[in-house]
Design a protein around this nucleic acid. Structure first.
Lengths: 246, 246
DNA sequence: TAGTGGTCTAGACCACCTC
DNA sequence: AGGTGGTCTAGACCACTAA
């Protein structure tokens, strides 16, 4: 008698790793309620055997979901589905991608694209030489024509994007298109009050609450490739995060 | 000729896993600059061999630091230390712990501790029955006697903490002390303006910017054990996050 | 005591990058 | 072509939990 029937189909000729195929299908089973909150899974040896993979591969699949906060494991006890519907998290994606995914219609007003001397903080974060210039961008991102955020970015000169493309696509999307692999982002989130200038751009009164984010993004060689200093309308945006302790 | 001398000492009789001992010492080497930003590590087979562990164990140690955003790997190329000093992240800890660690002197005004009927949103998040009561807490957290945050919490009745202890210790600390193992926290971060009541408690004018956090915490069996709705003085607090893509 | 997850090993084959 | 990390296997022993 098994506690989880759980049928999965694996394609061993696919380039997609087995552990990943397993993790995706387990996650789908949780999402659709086939694995209910609080329900216990069979032990990993049983599962590995039934699904036709080795125990380490099965463990790795389970570990993916533990890392996402969807499963919980206790030694000597077993593996359970977490109680409580989980929301999806902030990912290494741009606001543009997020809006498109949420079926909103994103657009961008490009205010500034120019070569400029960065301040010390920016130069240090991007690893530039003391006298080295960078590209400065200033944009207003709208969703369904309602202004949502003011985005100010600094990039190394060799990564300057085309102003025309910036109007219709997100910065991350453009960078990926030029062969840059974004890997790590370090973000700091805070709050502030709108200046009159910010209020004008976001159709808010001066002093309205804003959510702020400063972010440095690194590519897969660990090189800093972008610094962003953005402010968001507080009533229209928030950040979702899940923390899992080891 | 090795690119990284890297001396590490392993204790195979310790209950601390080998991969963890390795990860800690690697991280220390990065922190103290023995492994410089941008520097390439030896390949993992060489490293495993030199340090006297198997390749999977060595991989796992490296993977720990990749997950923390301290190392970056590229297939066919190698493993590098990330450029740019990384800051430490939000963890599964309370504001009280954070302040104590930062050498500030935390204290707490306990305003409310009572049994109360939660609204639907709270009841759902905590997995309570429709007519079930919960414990409601309202506190003001101060650092060096300056008010920093208003904290409102809901807990299941059986987890009610002692009002006396709340004054001198953090909620998470107290919960851990009663044998609860906090595992997962799901947080949403936003911004708002201070109401006159919030302004009074935080020594701010009405309309001042506040950082908001709503958080649900789960224990190691996946049970929701706490819901917090907190507001922070914007000028005194921010959240640090690191994202790593697979 | 029986069952669970946690760790570790030794080896294999593959995909990707650089030269 | 050679070197790198990515994946997968089959097995072993241990620590923790619950009955």
């Amino acid at each position: 008698m098994t506690t989880t029937p759980l049928e999965v189909g694996l394609d061993r000729s696919s380039p997609v790793p087995l552990y990943f195929q397993l993790a995706v299908q387990l996650e789908a089973a949780i999402d659709c309620g086939e694995l209910a909150p609080g329900q216990r899974l069979d032990n990993e040896i049983e599962l590995a055997d039934r699904l036709g993979v080795s125990r380490p591969t099965m463990r790795r699949a389970i570990q993916e979901l533990v890392g996402k906060g969807l499963l919980v494991r206790k030694r000597g006890v077993g593996t359970q589905v977490v109680q409580g519907a989980l929301k999806r998290d902030v990912e290494l994606s741009s606001l543009f991608d997020d809006l498109a995914k949420a079926q909103r219609r994103p657009s961008t007003d490009v205010l500034v694209v120019e070569r400029r001397r960065p301040d010390d903080g920016v130069a240090t974060a991007l690893g530039l030489q003391p006298e080295e210039d960078a590209v400065y961008l200033e944009r207003v991102r709208k969703a369904d024509d309602v202004p949502l955020a003011i985005m100010r970015n600094w990039l190394p000169l060799d990564l300057a994007p085309s102003p025309e493309l910036l109007r219709t696509r997100g910065l991350y999307d453009l960078m990926r298109g030029t062969g840059i692999h974004l890997r790590i982002a370090s973000q700091r989130i805070g709050a502030t009050s709108a200046t009159s200038e910010q209020g004008r751009l976001l159709a808010l009164r001066k002093g309205a609450p804003l959510l702020t984010m400063e972010r440095v993004t690194y590519d897969d060689s660990g090189r800093p490739v972008e610094l962003g200093r953005h402010v968001y309308r507080a009533e229209s945006y928030s950040f979702q995060i899940t923390l899992v302790s080891r």
